[in-house]
Amino acid sequence: MDNIQRNNTEKVLKTTKLNNQTKLQLWLKNNLFKDWKNAILTILTLMFSIYIIFKIGGFLVASEWEVVTENLPLLFMGQFPVEEVWRLWTSILILSALLGASWGVWRGVIGHVAMTIGFILLVFGIVPYTEASSKVYLFTSVALILLFYGIGRFVPKLKIPILVLWILYIPISLGIINGFGIMEPVKSNVWGGFLLTLILASVSIVCSFPLGLLLAVGRRSKLPIIKYSCIIYIELIRGMPLIMVLFIAQLLLPMFLGGVQLDNVVRAMIAFTLFSAAYLAENIRGGLQSIPRGQFEAAQALGLNQAKMMIFIILPQALKAVIPAMVGQFISIFKDTSLVAVIGLSDFLGMGEKIAANPEYLGKYMELYIVIAFIYFIFCYLMSHVSKHIEKSLGVGYR
């Protein structure tokens, strides 16, 4: 009896293996070798891909990466005081806890973000050139992601507190850096590297969205003052390059504030926010115009006033329709932070340029720029990935 069962099992396994091989052969034939033209194109593409892979692999092996490993603190923190670095790590630990708890409560796309961030932290913790104190913080961050994932999974009532903490995360992080008025603040003129890039991008994205939303709704207002004020602002900002807006914020903004002193970083945040809000307003206005007239009439038939109709009926549909455009604008903000170099700030790319200008690393700038480009790619791809999953969950493009 055992022999019969064993023979039957072997037959099933062989049949499954043959079916899988047949499916693979059919896929290759239909997609890569359908006719002689496709076959030639496939072979040429394969040869070119192998050539590129060997070239890239040879470059990665032959390159000297000391320019990166010896300047990691400068790249990621700029000239932030070493004795105050614990403030940055505290913000990262809070972020790790929030990511883990959100992963446990909602799972889905936030889990992909948490795993990606956790993997990056783990890699930096494992590599030998990371300082011992930094390794402790990195491994603690990974442990917090896993710990709070377990807590969030078994305590679903944490949804509201987690949302509140996400809203307050940027103010809390900036408060930690500035000491909450209790400790000596770390002045923004020493902020730099990836830290400055993240702060500028995060504040600009969070602040420009509600402003752009108000501008888009105001442009459709029936009140002439509100409508034409929004139109003038949007068209004026969209008619100027971002560099000009940055210079205006640096040179003219203090004049309009009546002597109130703002440091360069705050002025850059205001410039990015105002610039991005104008483009977001047009994206959202496009979404509002895509809503059929029947939706407005149905909301009015239900007895909803203008505010309730806009908040509960129109805006949810309009925002859902323009998710790709808005996320594209957010990605542009993140990348355009590199333009702050023209006003004397050293963001991620700017700090890389300063390191590359050091005679000690003459001719080794390519390795540095590859790492910077890779970090930019990871975070831009994360935003794009989150956008796709949000669209999928909301059924955008599906009927």
Rank of each mutant, 00 (worst) to 15 (best):
R6L: 13
A341G: 10
A373M: 14
Y365F: 07
H112L: 14
F54I: 14
K388Q: 15
R107Y: 02
A216S: 15
I313R: 09
L174V: 13
V61E: 14
Y398A: 12
V266K: 12
P156H: 08
I120S: 07
I160W: 10
K222G: 14
A39Y: 01
L280V: 06
V127A: 02
G150F: 13
R153A: 13
Y129I: 10
N19S: 15
E83N: 13
N71S: 06
A143S: 15
I151E: 06
E131A: 13
L99C: 07
F139R: 14
A298R: 00
Y381W: 11
L165G: 01
E66M: 12
F48Q: 09
L252H: 03
G152Q: 09
W106G: 00
I145L: 08
T42H: 09
I177N: 02
G111V: 08
L214N: 00
F76W: 13
L349V: 15
S141P: 01
S221Q: 06
V113S: 07
N3D: 15
W103M: 08
S133A: 11
G118R: 10
I378M: 09
I372C: 00
N189H: 10
L339C: 09
L319V: 13
E353Y: 08
I120C: 11
R153Q: 12
W106A: 12
R220H: 09
I231G: 01
E83L: 05
G192V: 05
G350Q: 05
F54T: 09
L46T: 12
L198D: 04
G108L: 01
I167Q: 06
W27A: 13
N305C: 06
H389C: 05
T140V: 11
V265A: 06
K308G: 02
I355M: 11
G397A: 12
A281C: 02
